[in-house]
Design a protein around this nucleic acid. Structure first.
Length: 105
DNA sequence: CTTATGACTATGA
DNA sequence: TTCATAGCCATAA
């Protein structure tokens, strides 16, 4: 893996404003390589976390679901953080993409 | 060259 | 709406 890819991924994720979420494919697309959504996920896995300036909790699946089993803090922690930032959730436990999906300016 | 794997996505039942 | 499957890219065996 090219570390530059990680840097670019973090650089994009860092731009996600509070109360918004972005999908892996969306971030990958902003990096110029829309087919590497999986690598974006890997970058998030290896991200320094919110303290490092990378709000990886704001990165979700295309359908609004979160990463099960790999959440940092424990199950429901990611959701709790998003809710705390004002992100709306559906009764099904998924992010309300229609309202909270982040769009590049 | 063929398989296998993975914080993904799209499609079909 | 949910679950299952196939396609996707890069790396490793």
């Amino acid at each position: 893996m090219d570390e530059g890819f990680f840097e670019r991924a973090y650089n994009v994720v860092r731009q996600i404003p509070c109360g918004r979420v972005a999908t892996y494919g969306q971030i990958a697309a902003m990096m110029g390589e829309p087919r590497k959504a999986r690598y974006v996920g890997f970058a998030m896995h290896a991200s320094p976390g919110v303290a490092g300036g990378v709000p990886c909790h704001r990165v979700v699946f295309a359908d609004g679901s979160l990463a099960p089993g790999f959440a940092f803090g424990g199950p429901g922690a990611q959701r709790a953080m998003l809710e705390d930032e004002g992100v709306a959730f559906t009764p099904s436990g998924r992010v309300d993409m229609r309202r909270c999906r982040w769009e590049a300016l």
